[in-house]
Amino acid sequence: MDVPLIELSGVQKSFGPVSVLKGVDLQAFPGRVTALVGDNGAGKSTLIKGLAGVQPYDAGVVRFDGEEVALHTPRDASRLGIEVVYQDLALCDNLDIVQNMFLGREETGFGTFDEGLMEREASETLRSLSVRTVKSVRQKVSSLSGGQRQTVAIARAVLKKARLVILDEPTAALGVAQTEQVLQLVKRLAEQGVAVIIISHNLADVFEVADHVSVLYLGQMVASLEVAETTRDEVVGYITGTRSQGGRAA
């Protein structure tokens, strides 16, 4: 297998006395979809918030393109081309869809916003996600439904060419058709050479899109499996802790 785009080794994170990540290893490869699964509270969101620079790790090494990098702020992550769709979406209700999608990376000309350009790019990206129910890209996010908000958050992550896209339960609030769209998008991103990490509780989705599954159990990576070589029952076993990895590391 080729070089991983991102490689975590021995990553740790605690909140006060509570140790949430106890030395986690994780890899993601360009052009491949890695699913990160685990029970509620296993530490999945904490793991990816460290990757996003939002909640830096306490210890451990992060390598990007084989080089050790420091991820202390969200800017560090976005500079490397890491885009994240957070579980809690992280949108500003008082801003409209375009403003949210471009937040922190607005297009300017003559020192002021080029609203037309941003509007067009936002519109095109949303269309590529086959968004149909949003009436206007200038709608305030507060007026959107849960699924529409999730779509906006995803659109924000794929707006600019990213090298690593991380989606934390991106389909949790979506209907059947929209979920299918997002899974198609994940595949398309991988085809374009993007490394994708997707967190999901829906194993059917995981088996549909992922090449690789990493299972987190109580802050420890208990299994790392090729999707082609595993079964649903095996993954469930690791998630619930009734199974532990013997010798089947990838």
């Binding site: 949303l126 269309r127 086959s130 149909r132 890209v137 200038r138 998008l185 398309r188 991103l189 085809e191």
Partner: peptide
């Protein structure tokens, strides 16, 4: 009405502006 959606294979915008999202203007 998602017939044909799954056939799209790249992230670039669909040139057929069948379902244009409005601008509110």
């Amino acid at each position: 009405m998602t017939t044909g959606e799954a056939e799209r294979t790249n992230a670039s915008p669909d040139p057929i502006a069948g379902d244009l999202i409005g601008s509110g203007v």
